[in-house]
């Protein structure tokens, strides 16, 4: 089945063409650069950018895949969670296209999409497994009992890890987005320079909290001289990064052990972090860890097409009155 996937939940305008189950023919992502100067995503601007870019991005995906719109056999689109205006652009476009061209249509949960990024690259990533989805806006741990059957084990009570990276980058005067900036600054730093707190949220909890960690960094540098911070920037970044990754890796591995599962999937933008990838592998001890390549970690439509293809092939369809759901849960 030839699937067109569309993703506009935040600041990436993306389209992909895929033959089920996992042959990716084109994966086009336009990252909106307009938000850079604000140090965050401006919802109003994101919607306007999606409107400007989406048609071109979809055209480009068809061209790169060497396909015509008439060849497409199903359309999959993100309908939540995300920014309501941004979601509506992709969703309305996809619904209109499905109706006009008379194609099967399905709305996909963005978080399910992130889990499917490993389905796309690793056929061995078979349920049951544990999935850690970590990004700028999300941080959740799932027990994937089967494709399409997810049990939430825990999520963040406050900030997502990507947000913690952004805030700490802000505190330390580094650029946006904070994840790559801190990872770079942390190179050659000593991760044991200072031990920032790890919020465990109770012994058996799979919940996360990153707000206190951000506050701890703010308090730590508050009474330090600017020269000290400059001199130890790499150490502070490495120590902070160590704390975030430690919490994520610890909970993900614990979930695998508790549920006696041998496979762990990590995905989402923060899954690009080298230290996190490394740490999860170090602690895996027999657990097979699946990590998407960087292009499939950040928001993309290939994962939406993959999840959409899976659901469409089972005969599932969404009604054409499907609405955007900004706080959609999985």
């Amino acid at each position: 089945m030839l699937i067109l996937g569309i993703e506009t939940s935040c600041d990436e305008t993306a389209a992909a063409i895929l033959t089920t189950p996992r042959t990716l023919l084109a994966n086009v992502v336009y990252s909106q650069i307009i938000h850079q100067k604000y140090g965050g995503v401006v919802p109003e601007l994101a919607s306007r950018e999606h409107i400007k870019r989406l048609v071109g991005v979809v055209d480009e995906s068809l061209t790169r895949a060497g396909q015509q719109l008439s060849d497409i056999e199903g359309i999959a689109v993100t309908y939540g969670p995300g920014l309501v205006g941004a979601l509506l652009v992709g969703l309305t476009f996809a619904k209109s296209l499905a109706q006009a061209a008379n194609k099967p249509f399905i709305g996909i949960n963005h978080i399910e999409g992130h889990i499917f990024s490993n389905y796309l690259e690793s056929p061995e990533c078979r349920p049951p497994f544990v999935a850690l989805v970590v990004s700028g806006g999300h941080s959740s741990l799932f027990h994937v009992r089967a494709w399409g059957d997810y049990r939430l084990l825990g999520k963040t009570r406050d900030d997502a890890p990507g947000e913690a990276f952004d805030k700490v980058a802000k505190i330390l005067g580094l650029s946006y987005p904070g994840g790559p900036a801190i990872q770079k600054a942390a190179e050659n730093g000593n991760p044991k320079f200072f031990r920032f707190p790890r919020a465990t949220m109770g012994k058996d909890s799979y919940e996360f909290s990153f707000s206190g960690l951000k506050t701890a960094v703010a308090l730590y540098i508050k009474d330090k001289a600017p020269e000290f911070i400059r001199e130890h920037l790499a150490d502070i970044c490495a120590s902070f990064q160590e704390s975030v990754c430690d919490i994520l890796a610890r909970k993900a591995i614990a979930a695998c052990r508790d549920l006696r599962l041998e496979r762990l999937s990590i995905s989402g933008g923060v899954a690009m972090n080298k230290r996190l990838r490394e740490m999860v592998e170090e602690r895996a001890d027999g657990i097979k860890v699946f990590k998407p390549s960087p292009l499939l970690c950040t928001d993309n439509a290939a994962m939406i097409a993959a999840a959409g293809g899976w659901h469409l092939e089972r005969g599932e369809r969404s009604p054409l009155n499907l609405n955007a759901v900004p706080y959609l849960q999985l």
Binding site: V42, P43, G137, K167, Y327
Partner: peptide
Amino acid sequence: LGAGKTAFTRGLCRGLGCLVEAHSPTYNI
């Protein structure tokens, strides 16, 4: 940063009967 603005807002929104937990708008503004 870290003074409690978001924690205060979380409480405020809970008190106002919001259906979702308030979270920091750092990322989405």
